[in-house]
Computed example of a mutant assay.
Amino acid sequence: MTALSLGAALLLAAAAMSAVMALAAAIERRSGNSGWIDVVWTFGLGAVAALGALLPFGSGPHDRRLFVALLAIAWALRLGLHIVRRTRGIGDDPRYAKMKRDWGANAAARLAWLLQLQALASVPLALGVVLAAHRPASLWQPQDLIGLAVFVTGIVGGGIADAQLRAFARSGGKGVCTRGLWGFSRHPNYFFECVLWCSYPLIAFGFAYPWGWLAWLAPACIALLLVRVSGIPPLEEHMLAKHGSAYRDYQRRTSALIPLPPKGAMR
């Protein structure tokens, strides 16, 4: 991949994700349910990343480009369908709902601007996929197998965490879910999401492919978004408001992200 083709990939990803998030804003305004924003983002990013993997930006062989595109599609389908199921059962996403209440009459314009910033922040994720797809080497090198193993770990672990939370809700569970992985991490789904995105730089790695190092921006970006911006902070604020001292106890004894043994018993 040349500097010119890398620039073209960046511009295409930025323009496409901007259009995706403009669509998300329009759907949110029409439906009144901000949960659909994450649905549109997931399917949109998966499509943009897969398209970038398949287009001939670089010298990656066709089977490599197809392999990485299928990974991106598998991620989008697994996560996107989960969010669809969750969104159908709510009136609004509590994170976005609080923002809209705080913004008042300017909520629509400010949310649309926020989603454009989210589109920009998504570009490193798409880039990680593109760089993995266009590494100029035959498929099934050792790092491809390692990357695939990491991807499977991430997608299966995230699926298990989401299934455990759904089972807790279906069983009529009250309070804070501490079943399974949720007893070792307050956000195991986010942890496995970060793990999954590490697969692309591993697949992109090659001593003769210096652009591949830029693929590490993908897991760095998703970790920053989930841990510091749109993931853990607003969700934990919502959970504290909803569950009070029970959630503070959960915070005290349970790791925020990386699954670890809990610290003592809940008071």
Rank of each mutant, 00 (worst) to 15 (best):
A133S: 07
G206D: 09
T178R: 15
I155G: 01
L131S: 05
P94N: 11
G35M: 10
M21K: 01
T254K: 03
A132D: 10
P259S: 08
I258H: 06
W140A: 15
I83M: 12
P233N: 02
L45P: 00
V84F: 03
G58V: 08
D92G: 02
A109K: 05
V195I: 15
A16I: 09
P56A: 03
L120P: 01
K100N: 03
R186Y: 09
A107P: 03
W213V: 14
G147I: 06
F67Q: 09
T254A: 08
I37A: 06
G264S: 03
G172Y: 12
K242N: 01
S245E: 15
F207R: 14
C198A: 15
A50L: 08
A223F: 15
A3R: 04
A49D: 06
P259M: 08
K98T: 14
N33C: 11
S255Q: 07
I232G: 00
V176H: 04
C177M: 07
G183P: 08
I90R: 12
Y209W: 11
I27P: 05
A49P: 10
A149H: 12
L139F: 10
V156I: 15
L214T: 06
V150N: 00
L257Y: 00
V229W: 07
W75H: 13
R64L: 15
R30G: 13
R85K: 11
F184A: 11
D93L: 03
G159D: 03
I232W: 03
G244T: 07
